[in-house]
Simulated assay, not measured.
Amino acid sequence: MKTRTEITTDLRQLGVRTGDLVMVHASLKAVGAVKGGPTAIVGALLDAIGSSGTLMGYASWDRSPYEETLNGVRMADEARRTWPPFDPATARTYPGFGLLNQFLVEAPGARRSAHPDASMVAVGPLSETLIEPHRLGQALGNGSPIQRFVELRGKVLLLGAPLNSVTALHYAEAIADIPGKRRVTYEMPLLGPNGETVWETAEDFDTNGILDRFAVAGQADAVETIANAYVATSRHRSGTVGDAFCHLFDARDIVSFGVAYLESRFGKGA
């Protein structure tokens, strides 16, 4: 069983430094047994970046009605009436993006963004800058916490998570100049000023497939495709943290690579 100190040492050997802005995508199963559990892993991440660093994660929401309202689908009246509004202070995270995010949300000083489905969580001195604002229609593209994370020269840490987890590459999809981008609409229940539920409709890029060719069931989407191509260039760092094989990416570099990848293959002149 690993200790918090050993995980911190592994992270520093991987290339995580004091003062870094790090967005983590984690597989607790891959990391293996750590004394103190997920709370100790969050602590090790915070130890590695120090008090001047900031840790970020993709929390989303376990009750997000994205699929239930996608592209005009109408929920049953009773389900719509009783669906809880999103409250960043109490909402649980979506387990499909990693169980560690719930422990990150519960960390002292954590801040969470207001977009229910694309909710981000951050801990550290840059947390407020990263988290606010986060409006519907700006989930992962311009105006989002991901844009600010990239501009602030963040690092993407895959802590045993697969290459299709690099959320920052959805920002590359959003800003790449390519025709035929898929768009979706969906509804989200927000918390009104008097505690009431206010349903609002959003339109955004389709993160399940930015182009038709990347929306084929059972095949790699654009994020996974770009991440695999990027890893092949060896412009990143890899190593072991706990029992997990990990990658550490410069967010600005992998996003620039992703934009160039999409535009060179699917742009107007391609």
Rank of each mutant, 00 (worst) to 15 (best):
I210C: 15
V150E: 10
G239T: 02
P65D: 01
G192Y: 13
D20Q: 09
P125N: 08
G269I: 09
P108Q: 07
L190I: 06
Y230I: 04
A139P: 00
Y261M: 07
M23I: 14
A91W: 03
V259W: 02
E263M: 07
Q138G: 01
R111Y: 06
S64T: 06
D20M: 08
L159Q: 02
A270D: 10
M1R: 02
H25P: 14
Y261F: 15
P179F: 01
Y186W: 07
I41M: 14
A251G: 04
G57R: 13
Y186I: 01
T240C: 07
G192H: 09
A172P: 05
S27A: 05
A202M: 02
A172R: 06
A76V: 06
P108S: 02
P193T: 09
W83H: 15
P145E: 05
A48M: 12
S51C: 06
L190D: 05
T8Y: 11
Q102R: 11
S264W: 02
G109C: 05
V31S: 13
F149R: 01
E224T: 04
P85C: 03
G57D: 13
G137C: 03
E224C: 03
L169R: 10
L70Q: 01
S27F: 13
A48N: 13
I178V: 02
Y171L: 10
A114S: 05
M56Q: 04
G242A: 11
L99W: 09
V255Y: 11
L163S: 00
T185P: 02
F245Y: 10
D62K: 10
E78W: 13
D62W: 11
L158T: 04
A244W: 05
R182D: 03
P85I: 05
G195R: 09
A122I: 03
F103M: 08
A139Q: 01
L158F: 14
L211M: 11
R252F: 11
R81H: 14
A48P: 14
M120D: 00
W199V: 12
